[in-house]
Design a binder for these strands. Structure first.
Lengths: 314, 314
DNA sequence: CTGTTAGCGCGTTCAA
DNA sequence: TTGAACGCGCTAACAG
């Protein structure tokens, strides 16, 4: 039972018109007689005819394809951004190709190569994947990086410093002056260095005693390092959700619950901890902005643009 | 700076050979002189020439496109399955188009329509999205459903009953006989009815007193309904992660920690609850199986096939 | 307004 | 082994 594959030629014959007329109807060319249009359209609909995409693409401007490199499919923040990107892209009839980097530099390179072979026009990369200078250079003007700042390339990045500042400000204004900080070490540019720096800056400016510990990005590390903070602590700020989770575990064990603030979001945490301040970046907004930048690039504006994404306290 | 787009014609001229020879080199046709092949290949490489995909697709068998409808991008289980699907698909040079249904039936219908327009060959649907009979019928032979059983269509589904049974068995064999159950109401076929039924069956078979409460799929509901279980309870089984989280909160508050078993996975829970049994379905396996079924369909085997996915206790 | 003609870039004959 | 010619399904330019 092989389905007959119709072409505009077939439709033309069936309608007793020329191929081009069918083509015109397909492309909503205004200069076709209403009667003919009806006739052709009816046949098209009744037969369920769809013009061949490849043939179509060959002639005119083939609708663009963008590659998307996410670092990990199941990451709450990335998912939200990805969702926004996808809907924005579909609205523009742009086909996205999604791949995963798993934070692996070689994977990124590999996928970028594949993209070139597949004639991908532009790329959106979630910035936690490492990016070498030559890749950046090579895709200059056809790439948007999300969540990380690079001065050489268009990017949409999060306001890490502002976020930490806001959280500190909130705690401070609530009267807490011994604020501990659990962070990520400086190798990690955004989640690590930037946030730590911002914490230290705040302490410095408001004459607060810095009290912090830097570690890895996982729950256990948060648990361990929470113990390393010196007392007294009357509030705790964590750079990430995982650290917050680890910290909460420690604090609970020590019957030492103090207000907790962190960057990220986790429904479970909210249920376990009464006095919680969380901060979310505008993930959706980031996605939309990234697509906007990409569209600008596709349309010829190859200028490097940087956009900051704001955040929301809750 | 518009990049010159090369064609085989250009390459042919540069190599002083015919277009067809270039084409042959591109397609690894064995009957070309080694010398000419070298010559042509060199030019191709040096110039970085890639044959136009659309033109290519137009002639031969255009490489297939499959649509994937996930219900929610950020769901741990679905993500894992999706990952497996993507890698399997890429290996086959199949292009996936991913969309989100958000558990919304109209969205599913909408996307399926779009798929038809885009000449999508087949579809993989994550079964939590509702599927009407006519859709099922329409895509019969070109669709694989994941996570839900339909007798009319090929699907890869999880062993809900076996899973609950296994968890019950584990608790029971550890000597617990008052096992409470927090579940989802029967409207939900898989997460709800099937699992509840399995719990009841187990109780019946082993002469255990049933002690359960059915509710909605969210943390708060788990918390509320945990209170409704009658005492005594010496172990608790939850149908889902969210319910488990809610339950843990309640149990902690009541200083009433008992062994907890649930279907799903959550790193946080493991950190808060000492005596925890969790069960994961073979999400990756499900993805791979789904792709296998799809490939079989594409290759002409339109028979409806059902496959059960096993699970892992931990 | 509409039909005819000419390609798009590539794979595939078919002679040479 | 190779090159020339043809056609895929479609859009665009040109006549009518």
């Amino acid at each position: 039972m092989t389905e007959k594959h119709y072409t505009i030629k077939d439709i033309a014959k069936l309608c007793q018109v020329g191929k081009s007329t069918v083509s015109r109807v397909l492309n909503h060319d205004p200069k076709v007689n209403e009667t003919t249009r009806k006739k052709v359209q009816t046949v098209i609909d009744s037969i369920g005819f769809k013009p061949n995409r490849s043939a179509r693409a060959m002639r005119g401007a083939q609708d663009p394809v963008v590659g998307i490199i996410v670092s990990k499919l199941n990451s709450s923040g990335e998912s939200q951004t990805l969702r926004a990107i996808l809907t924005a892209l579909y609205r523009q009839k742009i086909t996205p190709i999604i791949v995963e980097s798993q934070f692996n530099e070689k994977q990124v390179a590999h996928h970028l190569n594949l993209f070139k072979q597949r004639q991908v026009d532009s790329v959106i990369v979630f910035g936690f994947s490492p990016l070498s200078k030559d890749i950046l250079q090579q895709w200059q003007g056809n790439m948007v990086v999300i969540a990380r700042y690079f001065k050489e390339i268009s990017c949409v990045y999060y306001d890490d410093q502002g976020a930490i500042h806001a959280l500190m400000h909130k705690l401070h204004s609530q009267g807490y002056h011994h604020i501990g900080y659990l962070g990520i070490h400086d190798q990690d540019e955004t989640t690590g260095r930037l946030r730590t720096q911002s914490y230290l800056d705040f302490c410095h400016r408001y004459k607060l005693p810095p009290n912090f510990s830097l570690t890895e990005l996982n729950i256990e590390a948060g648990y361990q390092h929470c113990a390393r903070l010196s007392l007294p602590i009357d509030a705790l700020l964590c750079a990430t959700t995982s650290l917050a989770v680890g910290a909460v575990k420690y604090l609970q064990e020590q019957k030492l619950m103090c207000p907790l603030a962190y960057i990220g979001q986790n429904p479970l945490l909210e249920h376990f901890v009464p006095n919680l301040i969380s901060l979310d970046f505008g993930y959706e907004q980031a996605g939309n902005q990234a697509v906007d930048l990409l569209l600008a690039q596709i349309r010829g504006n190859r200028d490097v643009q940087q956009q900051l994404v704001s955040f929301q306290l809750s």
